[in-house]
Write a protein that binds this DNA or RNA. Structure first.
Length: 768
DNA sequence: CAGTGAGCGAGCTTCCGCTTGACTT
């Protein structure tokens, strides 16, 4: 029987550590926090020193029972939860819940999972730091007070089930503010000049004018002057430069890169990383630390030297910039740098590879680059073109990893310039002036919102993914892909001494998986900004964090900090209860309906944003739901009136009426009881009877062709032609047909075999 | 795969931060 019990937070960690310690140690896990404020009510005694009531969480009863049993058999119990505020509190709650006495209890902390670090920690035990525990308690109580006092006001004034909180309300505010910024953005255009020069046979020099022209006339004047001009290399500069690798991943940077490079959602990244962690492939994935253990740095150096040569090895130690970082873990890295590929499936594999590359690159030498800038003079003008190129002299870390950016305007990789000499005369091939438009700040993606929150010190690595999903579940934010619209731009091209003007089109505003606020988010946000400006202030978290730090240092009692906050906060809560519902959910008057001469309003109705024609006390007032992407604050009268044209009678086909409308799944036409989706090209307001019948007929032929093969005596299994190609339908299972198989040649047995080989599909949809 | 929208009242919803599985269309 082991005489020592070590309790850590994570079971995977427990397993690893048990391997490091001898027979005298049993290592168990608490699975995170074990006690919390009860779910049901406030459970904070605001009249009595804010005394919290704690209870063992329902899902931790079994854990506590097991830990109690282990503790009874042990002489010494080491509480080894993380060394941060939350970890200290976990140790204290464990001590309370397990009824441990001081003499048998030790508190130990380690920052990396290595044999040395753990043995070192065991040699240096201490007691529980109650100041740190109190700082956590203050954090917990503050969040409960804010969340549980504001949310019920939202239920009464706006809609049931809504929520507000220190973290989520700021996240929503960021998205709402950005949407309004985009809505109010006035795009202006200017003219950018690029030139192609012929150097020698086949070699072309691309150059651009650093100055943009404000108007087409100015651009045209420049081009006209260039007809008579000579061009020459005025200056050639070569500068050595270097590039350094990015530090290894933290939770937030991993989420960002996996989003940009692999198109993973924030929660998908975390689920995959969790699997890699549990199978021992990577270190802990919820961390804000850039630190690598000495052992890891040495292991990386030896892997790099072995794979690429010693000139590629450059050990680096990174310091975490963010103040809020709590450094309880290492950065995210592979547990074994020699393994460049791991994971149980395609996506685990891709995520592992990303982590491996980033971590190993952080320990590889800088890339040495030679940058060349050529200045092209114009004989009859003081303006100059520039052309730049770079040559990689030593690739260094670029051999394995290139970081991506969110910046949509960032230059693609620059190539090498053709051989040039100062004074060299250039032959102009063509010169283009293209109208370009200024763009507003981009909408957030899940990952870029996490990045922003982290920069502001709001939220923690363990909560980024849940926060992003909460604000979507509450109906504040939706993640959408939206088609862009076409925009015309002017282009002037000078070639062969003549200038040609064309008007071309480009697509703008295409948004892929971006975050859009809903009307409810706007109403809730405005309410919070009006009445609780301090709580949704972008620096609220940073301010209270400073106070939590003071509590942790023993410089301030936790309950007086909470009391200072609460007295003002709670009186605001009481005042706010008196605010009228109609004051919070204002209806906006859009104008008059020309048909009925009645007023038109936009407001948040019981079932969502709605347009209303007629006064609220009219018996025959009319309603229409607003469409996605329409906002109460910005919808025009014209757009609003359009909504009343649906459902619309498109015409008659085969003696049956064709109706166009918008349903739950988007715009559709209905004919003879069947629905046909209109897709993105056709608008239900303008779709013609010809377009509608064409759609009905294509869908019919597709239906007729759907069954490729059926088997006699077995109606469970069929070979079908689906949207993504042929597939086998075996009961409820859909099985893709391998490329080397012809669908029409499949036998029943082959279908059965393929179906059996395919694992049950995991559910990926929304939970009810 | 709609059109809904009164007012009353009971009883429900909610926070953030630590952890994993169990569960569902």
């Amino acid at each position: 029987m082991p005489k020592n019990l070590v309790i850590v937070e994570s079971p995977a960690k427990a397993k690893t550590i048990e391997g490091y310690l001898g027979k005298d140690f049993k290592v168990a896990s608490s699975y995170g926090h074990v006690r919390d404020l009860p779910k049901g009510g406030l459970s904070v005694d605001v009249d009595n020193g804010f005394l919290p009531t704690y209870e063992i969480q329902a899902d931790k009863k079994a854990v506590i029972k097991e830990l109690k049993k282990l503790a009874k058999d042990a002489e010494i119990i080491y509480l080894a939860s993380d060394g941060d505020r939350e970890g200290e509190a976990i140790s204290w709650h464990l001590k309370e819940a397990l009824d441990l006495n001081d003499s048998q209890t030790r508190r130990i902390v380690f920052h990396e999972i290595t044999k040395n670090a753990i043995q070192n920690a065991l040699q240096n035990p201490r007691g529980i730091d109650l100041n740190l525990v109190n700082a956590q308690q203050a954090r917990r109580v503050l969040d409960r007070l804010v969340g549980f006092e504001i949310s019920p006001i939202l239920w009464r004034k706006i809609k049931g089930g809504l929520s507000a909180g220190r973290v989520q309300s700021v996240a929503v505010r960021l998205v709402v503010d950005r949407e309004r910024e985009i809505d109010g953005f006035n795009s202006s255009s200017s003219f950018k000049i690029t030139a192609h020069f012929i150097i020698e046979k086949g070699k072309i020099l691309n150059a651009e004018l650093p100055k943009k022209f404000e108007s087409e006339d100015q651009a045209l004047a420049f081009l006209e002057k260039c007809i008579e001009a000579d061009f020459f290399i005025e200056k050639l500069e070569t500068k050595p430069s270097k590039k350094s690798p990015a530090p290894p991943f933290t939770t937030s940077t991993l989420q960002q890169e996996a989003s940009r490079k692999l198109s993973f959602s924030v929660s998908q990244t975390m689920t995959l990383a969790q699997k890699l962690y549990e199978s021992g492939k990577i270190t802990y994935m919820r961390t804000d630390s850039l630190n690598l253990s000495e052992e890891a740095i040495n292991a990386a150096a030896s892997a790099i030297t072995g794979d690429f040569g010693s000139e590629y090895s450059q050990s680096r130690r990174y310091k975490t910039k963010s103040k809020s970082a709590q450094e309880a873990h290492e950065a995210i890295r592979p547990t074994d740098f020699r393994v460049s590929s791991a994971g149980k499936d395609y996506n685990e594999n891709r995520l592992y590879e990303l982590i491996w590359k980033r971590a190993i690159a952080s320990q590889i030498s800088d890339a040495q680059i030679e940058k060349t800038i050529a200045t092209v003079g114009i004989s009859n003008n003081d303006l100059k073109f520039t052309a730049s190129g770079e040559v990689i002299k030593f690739d260094g870390f670029l051999k394995v990893y290139i970081e991506s950016t969110d910046d949509e305007n960032s230059d693609e990789q620059k190539g090498m310039l053709p051989p040039l000499a100062e004074g060299q005369v250039l032959e102009l091939k063509d010169l283009t002036s293209r109208e370009t438009f200024t763009r507003p700040a981009p909408r957030y993606t899940e990952a870029s919102l996490v990045k922003k929150l982290e920069e502001m010190g709001i939220g923690r690595p363990s909560t980024y993914a849940p926060t992003i999903s909460t604000i979507q579940k509450r109906g504040y934010i939706s993640k959408e892909t939206r088609e862009g619209r076409e925009r015309k731009f002017i282009q002037l091209v000078l070639a062969n001494r003549g200038i040609e003007r064309t008007i071309n089109t480009e697509t703008t505003g295409y948004e892929k998986q971006k975050l859009f606020p809903t009307n409810i988010a706007m109403v809730v946000n405005d309410f919070l900004v009006d009445h609780f400006p301090n709580v949704v202030d972008f620096s609220f978290t940073a301010n209270v964090e400073k106070e939590f730090d003071e509590i942790a240092l023993g410089e301030k009692p936790w309950d007086s900090m909470i009391s200072d906050f609460y007295s003002k906060f709670h009186s605001t809560v009481e005042e706010t209860k008196l605010v009228e519902r109609s004051e919070v959910n204002k209806s906006r008057e859009l104008g008059k309906d020309p048909a009925s001469e009645r007023k038109v309003y936009a407001r948040l109705g019981k079932f969502g944003p709605v347009i209303q024609i007629g006064e609220s006390d009219d018996d025959d007032k009319k309603f229409a739901s607003m469409r996605q992407g329409q906002f109460i604050e910005s919808i025009s009268l014209e757009e609003a009136l359009d909504l009343f044209q649906l459902p619309r009678n498109v015409g008659v086909y085969e003696e049956e009426e064709v109706i166009a409308a918008i349903g739950k799944f988007g715009p559709y036409v209905k004919h003879n009881g069947k629905f046909y989706s209109l897709g993105k090209e056709l608008d239900p307001l303008s779709v013609s009877i010809d377009e509608a019948t064409a759609l009905i007929n294509t869908k019919r032929t597709a239906d007729a062709n759907m069954v490729i093969k059926a088997f006699e005596g077995n109606d469970e299994i069929q070979v079908l032609n689906g949207r993504y190609g042929p597939y086998i339908k075996a009961g409820k299972k859909n099985v893709k047909i391998p490329k080397d198989q012809k669908p029409e040649d499949l036998t029943l047995q082959e279908c059965v075999d393929l179906a059996e080989k395919t694992p049950e599909k995991k559910f990926k949809g929304k939970r009810k």
